[in-house]
Write a protein that binds this DNA or RNA. Structure first.
Length: 578
DNA sequence: CTAGGGTTAG
């Protein structure tokens, strides 16, 4: 059954159960929310409030600040807070937490810590919320080490007893930054302590495992949770369905979707978006559009995520014109495109080498009230390098920096790769040296690019020197690093050295993969070392790897010259085919 | 009135 008819069936089942229930939002209506529409309103209200006699309570000030934070006027909140203190208006622990949070939301966790002395001065005790807010701030600036240290300190020195909120903050911070095992460790720690993990905690762990593609482990956690009589909710299903979509396991997606509906969990726009995005990434954009029509019929309105996913789906298939039509439809439905919508289309144009259209759209962004971001620049840079428009690319990179954008890891990768690809070794190394000087050289992938670039430009010695330097910087080579080095040795016909590198790779726990074998086979092939080549080919096919296009082409050429290896090739071929 | 979990682009 197709996904769409399946979704439809599930949905009708749900609608039968729920049609009579009305969904009511909890009413958080305050007078403020209606009155305060912009920053000016908030400031005006604040000045009215401080003149009132008697003064409004600290709760009212908190409410006002909360609204301002919602409107993202963080620095204004801080400035009003300073005025409050100057006027001698009493403050509370709530207000102080709001200040800490404002700093954190501005990515100024250092300033957030400087609020702590005010607690001491006013005799307000720290509580678990104070530290929890600070932990969130640390994570949001990717200061994982500091966050973990603070958390450990709180526990070790008995400064505050972590509650479920704090565990959730730390676990979410860790899991979102790839530390799935540490997240799992904290779950186990909780189970030993006084705080019982709740559905939120389990969802964090399950989501991390699903994102890693480790669905089996996620299911184990789900079963543990069920044994404690904690039931999965829509977010749990979200994680599983997302994980299954990414693995392309559509049959299982159906099973989980139907299970969810049978539990009377109503699919919302987010879970439909996951489904739609999964279908689009797999090239099934028509199915995705069907799902979208279905959700509209059921009263779930598509949002910007829905449209962006479908646009990306068409772009990935090279149908930028259709993507553009979706873009226009979205605007007709009064959904304002965001920078991601533009980036998707720009990427679509760049993939088709239509960089002029991409540039035109780039110019439209600011006219339409949006702002380009680093992704926009990276996408266009990549497009320019792809077309070999080096001069334009250099100019665009310079423009990006002078416009105040901070180049990121992707930018550096794109520019370095581009320079090396067109033989601009000097420029590449000059940029690389700058990055090393700014200590922006903490990612092994950056080194992989440089090693690869040097090898491809006949500078094997310099590549070796950089490879040797890795341990000094404290970076561990990964499988790609070894592959690039092996590739470099093979290019120079240094097959013994390539073999040594392969040994090192295995010693450090990396099994040769499909790239390693292809590179080695090509290396031996080029040097007509047929016996060695045969050994690798057998090992390779034995592990289920096949030859890529470049290797196949080389093989065909070699066959013309030495037909004697034909038998062996046919034998290996039949092994791969079965 | 302060804090926690799910979807998009390079």
């Amino acid at each position: 059954m197709k996904i769409i008819s399946f979704v439809a069936t599930c949905h009708s089942a749900w609608v039968r159960v729920y049609t009579n229930k009305s969904i009511c939002k909890p009413g958080i209506s305050t007078n403020f929310e209606k009155e305060v529409k912009c920053l000016d309103d908030a400031v005006t209200l604040f000045h009215q409030m401080v003149r009132m006699k008697p003064l409004p309570s600290v709760v009212d000030f908190s409410k006002l600040f909360k609204i301002m934070i919602k409107m993202k006027h963080y620095s204004a909140v801080l400035s009003l807070f300073r005025q409050m203190r100057k006027l001698g208006i009493p403050i509370s622990d709530f207000i102080l937490t709001i200040m800490i949070n404002s700093y954190c939301l501005m990515y100024r966790v250092d300033c957030a810590f400087s609020v702590l002395p005010i607690y001491l001065k006013k005799g307000i005790p720290f509580d678990v919320v104070t530290f929890n807010t600070l932990l969130r701030g640390l994570f949001s600036e990717n200061k994982v080490k500091d966050a973990v240290e603070l958390f450990k300190k709180l526990v070790r020195e008995d400064i505050c007893e972590p509650n479920d909120f704090m565990y959730a903050t730390v676990m979410n911070g860790l899991s979102k930054r790839g530390h799935t095992q540490k997240t799992l460790g904290l779950l186990r720690l909780m189970e030993q302590g006084n705080t019982e993990p709740d559905i939120c905690i389990y969802n964090i762990v399950i989501d991390a495992l699903c994102k890693d593609g480790n669905l089996d482990a996620a299911i184990n956690i789900l079963n543990e949770m069920k044994q404690k009589d904690i039931h999965p909710d829509i977010l749990t299903y979200n994680s599983f369905i997302n994980g299954l979509c990414k693995l392309g396991q559509w049959e299982k997606v159906k099973t989980w979707f139907s299970e969810m509906v049978n539990l009377n969990i109503y699919p919302d726009v987010r879970i439909f978006n996951i489904l739609i995005d999964g279908l689009c990434k797999e090239g099934k954009v028509e199915d995705a559009e069907e799902v979208m029509k279905h959700m509209v019929r059921k009263g779930v309105e598509p949002d910007i995520f829905t449209y962006n996913a479908i646009m990306d789906g068409y772009c990935l298939r090279g149908q930028v014109k259709r993507a553009r039509r979706i873009f226009d439809i979205m605007i007709d439905k009064s959904i304002e495109p965001n920078i991601i919508s533009y980036n998707i289309l720009i990427n679509g144009y760049c993939m088709k080498k239509e960089v002029n259209d991409a540039m035109q759209l780039f110019c439209e962004i600011s006219q339409k009230g949006s702002k380009p971001d680093v992704v926009t620049y990276n996408t266009i840079l990549q497009g320019l390098f792809k077309l070999g428009r080096i001069g334009h690319a250099k100019k665009f990179f310079a423009e990006m920096l002078s416009a105040g954008f901070i180049s990121d890891f992707y930018t550096h990768g794109i520019v370095l790769n581009g320079y090396f690809k067109y033989g601009l070794v000097e420029e590449a190394l000059s940029l690389f040296n700058k990055l090393e000087g700014k200590r922006e050289n903490t990612d092994i992938e950056l080194y992989n690019i440089v090693i690869n670039g040097l090898c491809n430009n006949g500078k094997l010695d310099e590549a070796c020197a950089i490879f040797e330097k890795l341990s000094l910087i404290g970076l561990l080579p990964n499988a790609r690093t070894y592959n690039k080095m092996i590739h470099g040795f093979c290019l120079e016909g240094l097959l013994d050295e390539a073999n040594d590198m392969l040994r090192k790779m295995e010693e450090n726990g990396y099994l040769p993969n499909v790239f390693t074998y292809n590179v080695l086979v090509r290396g031996f092939l080029r040097c007509s070392k047929i016996t060695e080549m045969t050994t690798f080919m057998k090992e390779m096919t034995g592990r289920g790897f096949s030859f890529d296009a470049t290797t196949t082409e080389l093989l065909v050429n070699v066959l013309r010259e030495s037909p004697s290896i034909l038998d062996m090739i046919l034998e290996l071929h039949s092994k791969i085919m079965k």
